[in-house]
Design a binder for these strands. Sequence first.
DNA 1: CCTGTTTCTAAGCAACTGATTAGATATCAG
DNA 2: CTGATATCTAATCAGTTGCTTAGAAACAGG
Lengths: 192, 192
Amino acid sequence: MSRNKSYDENAVLERAMIVFWINGYEATSVRLLEKEMGINQFSIYSSFTSKKKLFIESIRRYREHVKQNVYQTLLREDAGMKELEQYLYKAARKKKKPGLSRGCLVVNTAAELVSSDEEIAAEVNGYFIFIREMLRKVLQTAVDKGEIAPDTDVEKQSAFFLGVMQGLSVASKTTDTGQLNDFVSVALKQIK
Amino acid sequence: MSRNKSYDENAVLERAMIVFWINGYEATSVRLLEKEMGINQFSIYSSFTSKKKLFIESIRRYREHVKQNVYQTLLREDAGMKELEQYLYKAARKKKKPGLSRGCLVVNTAAELVSSDEEIAAEVNGYFIFIREMLRKVLQTAVDKGEIAPDTDVEKQSAFFLGVMQGLSVASKTTDTGQLNDFVSVALKQIK
DNA sequence: CCTGTTTCTAAGCAACTGATTAGATATCAG
DNA sequence: CTGATATCTAATCAGTTGCTTAGAAACAGG
């Protein structure tokens, strides 16, 4: 019975996520969203209830996005120091060409909204916990493999590298690759 | 000749800076500004031309603010590792009580606006250069004092600690003090 | 006191904000 | 095909956005 949706909710959510990623929450209007998602406001609201809920769904979607496109290697069971090192240097190399250093959606959100919205703050927090958990596993694997000292404090080091990644995301907005490489190299040297 | 201004431009700018600091640029309306600055829109525009220019002035004002209230110790000629250490642990201890972890205005701005506004990006960049210059001096003093190894790469280390500070600003929004302390302790240990 | 200039108040501007709605359109069970 | 239901289009809602302006009020020089 009844009519079918003419769009794929998953696909339009991916589009929405990218728009929020580029512009931030406040600077993204529902008009812009309907244009970029390719559906009109009625459909947006009927599928996602409100702009804020769409944004929260976008953050969750972002997590899946980076799992598959950014952290796919680090998430492998056998990922250790080599993979972490590769990831960090790659992140430092991110081109910040005119207008396009969007950084990390969640870091941007932390800066923009965490102090004013608890629901979003919880979402952001969950994301960072996920990243840290990933780092814990990677570091533990590195210990098991003998790549780093057996008495390495994985708890402390995972907190450290999470902080480094957050710093990298901010720094990459204005800083050149050389300086970012210095940052990363010092961060890595202390554990080797 | 003519009437006198009934407000101090310096004082109202300080108020404006704090409002932007708490809410961010987009989420701060001119109505809110006139309420918090204690003057009406006519006066805001006659003194600061536009919301954006007022914001840029606020960033400059923020720099003076932190020079006098946050980095005053680190900016002293003789500041070395002890002062850097003290500052970082203090930053890690920043209470993020309900609604009030505003972090650093410039880091927040980097996340919110750097990708969309070049003029603001330049302002943000200038601020980070200033912080790094401060770190360079502190680290060089630490070398001269013999607090850290004489062959310390001050360039790399200043880039590193700038990144650490940026990460700390983001992390402090959602992360508890214990984890922030771990982050800071690892960052400091590698140089000692 | 006047006169000229500036600052102030408060109303108003068009454009945009997130969100809703009425009516047209499509779809499927029967 | 018919009828019920869901989805679409497009207009519209009240409220807010950054910014401007006309006229009242305050001040200084003469």
